[in-house]
Computed example of a mutant assay.
Amino acid sequence: MMLYVKNMVCDRCVMIVRQQLEQLHFEVKDITLGKVEVAPDPTAHQLQDISATMELLGFELMDKEKDQLVEQVKNKVIELVHHSDLNEVHQSLISIIADRLDKDYAYLSRLFSDVEGLTIEKYIIQQKIEKVKELLEYGELNLNEIAYKMGYSSSAHLSAQFKSVSGLSPSKYKSSSLNKRKPLDKIK
């Protein structure tokens, strides 16, 4: 049976969900961000136990198809933005997401906006800015290198977008004690 798990956004989340399901005596056949295939199929009572366990850890089982699809979009955005070099991506992230989910972009866009109250494009920008904050805090790359890595046309474009989202320029953010990153699952 396939379970869809909300807020499962990183490798540690995958590890924690796997451990919890195994402690509940389920075999995890396959697990990716937001999706877990388990065996044997859980009973209704076992699903309640899984749901309660997941909620204690900050996760949520999803049963509505639309919610599952929105969560898949979020997970694909996180995967692309946080786990790949965007300078090597030669098509729009939205096209990649629609292709990977085998769904029409217009449908995904409408659904995402209805459920989340913001567009996929704005969600992508917010995720990119959180990744930029992370890279700024590490201090290993300069702003030009970060802009290139994140697929921006220039550091000026990155700076303008960063300031419009965070209210600070990248240099102010880096030198400020106010530099606060958001958990990936809290970005809206």
Rank of each mutant, 00 (worst) to 15 (best):
M1D: 15
M1S: 15
L3G: 06
Y4H: 15
K6H: 03
N7Y: 01
R12G: 09
C13N: 10
I16Y: 05
V17W: 08
R18K: 15
L24W: 02
H25A: 13
E27V: 09
V28D: 08
D30T: 09
L33Y: 09
K35M: 06
K35D: 01
E37A: 14
V38W: 02
D41C: 07
T43A: 11
A44R: 03
I50W: 10
S51M: 03
S51N: 15
A52R: 13
E55H: 10
L56S: 12
D63K: 09
K66T: 00
K66N: 13
D67E: 13
L69K: 06
V70T: 00
E71Y: 00
V73L: 03
E79K: 05
E79M: 08
H82V: 12
H83Q: 07
S84F: 07
E88W: 08
H90M: 05
S92K: 11
S95D: 06
D104R: 15
D104W: 03
D104H: 12
Y107N: 07
Y107F: 13
Y107R: 15
L108G: 09
L111W: 05
F112Y: 11
T119H: 04
K122C: 07
K122M: 11
Y123H: 14
I124Q: 10
I124Y: 07
I125N: 15
I129N: 15
E130F: 15
K131D: 02
E137A: 09
E140S: 06
L143D: 01
Y148F: 12
Y148P: 01
Y152S: 07
S153G: 13
S154H: 08
A160Y: 08
S164W: 07
S166T: 13
S166W: 01
G167W: 11
S171V: 09
S171H: 08
S176E: 04
S176L: 06
S177Q: 12
L178F: 13
N179A: 10
K186S: 12
I187F: 03
K188N: 12
